[in-house]
Design a binder for these strands. Structure first.
Length: 268
DNA sequence: ATGGTAGGTACCCTA
């Protein structure tokens, strides 16, 4: 069972490279963020053509927007309003796999970027980001159960570990790596013992990035990346983690997203 | 210390 998360930065513009990814890597489920597309304009056909017949989407005009595209049937599809906003940042759906008794609920999440100033008193966007993470923590604490497994993935817009950024020291005051955000995300992670699936495979002292700014001339040469995209699993799935992949080559295609696809494989 | 790029929308917002 292969699952993928990718901040696609406009699904209409980049549906062809999502199709390439589906053809080349054959994930069972693809989760997208920043689809930037209202539901009535979502390019469903591009994905049903390739056998991804089950779509759960929540898009709005112009920004945000999340999607779950699956070869496997999806049930219990949910759309969440977080911090009292209906702005296309969190959906979930459940699926089953042979060899695993419980349903698996996948949560596709796009945490707010948070603006430039890491101070909730003067920056509403930063306050929104912190409130969003706190609400997610409370929701998962209240809604996890032994009856289901969960995967939480997406663009979390926070790089929590020292080696999740190109320079820990230079990014301590930059939104995405400030201690206050890292503390909030770590608290959420610990609340129900989420397993960080990428770091399950990649040692914490090894640099690991999933995003490079468009504002660098040569992203590969300067390599000023951050690990903003995450796949977390509940502890019952940990024994089934088999592999990870971060598709750096997708940063080099014509008209790339600034994020690359992140994969995890499970064996049941 | 600054500005660099990208997408969507409607002349400016978000990232």
């Amino acid at each position: 069972m292969r699952i993928c998360t990718w901040n696609i930065n406009s699904v209409r513009l980049r549906a062809p490279i999502v199709q390439d990814l589906m053809r080349q890597h054959e994930p069972d489920i693809v989760c997208l963020q920043e689809t930037k597309t209202p539901n009535d304009k979502f390019p469903h056909d591009a994905f049903t053509q390739l056998g991804y017949n089950h779509h759960h989407i929540d898009g709005i005009k112009g920004y945000n927007g999340v999607a779950i595209l699956s070869k496997r049937p999806l049930k219990d599809a949910q759309v969440y309003s977080r911090v009292d906003r209906e702005d296309g940042r969190h959906i979930s759906a459940a699926f089953t796999v042979d060899g695993f008794a419980k349903p698996i609920e996948v949560h596709c999440i796009y945490i707010p970027a948070g603006g430039d100033e890491p101070d909730r008193e003067i920056n509403d966007k930063f306050a929104h980001k912190l409130d969003f993470v706190a609400e997610l923590e409370n929701w998962f604490s209240a809604n996890h159960s032994d009856d289901k497994a969960m995967i939480a993935l997406g663009d979390f817009n926070i790089a929590p570990l020292e080696h999740d950024v190109w320079s820990h020291k230079q990014l301590l005051k930059i939104v995405s790596h400030t201690p206050i955000e890292v503390e909030a995300l770590t608290k959420m992670q610990k609340s129900i013992d989420w397993v960080d699936a990428l770091r399950h495979f990649i040692p914490e002292d090894e640099k690991c990035y999933t995003w490079w700014s468009y504002r660098n001339r040569d992203w590969r040469k300067s390599n000023r990346g951050r690990r903003l995209d995450h796949i977390w699993v509940t502890p019952d799935l940990k024994p089934h983690l088999k592999a990870q992949d971060i598709l750096l080559d997708m940063r080099d295609v014509e008209k790339p997203s600034d994020h690359v696809p992140v994969f995890v494989d499970f064996a049941f």
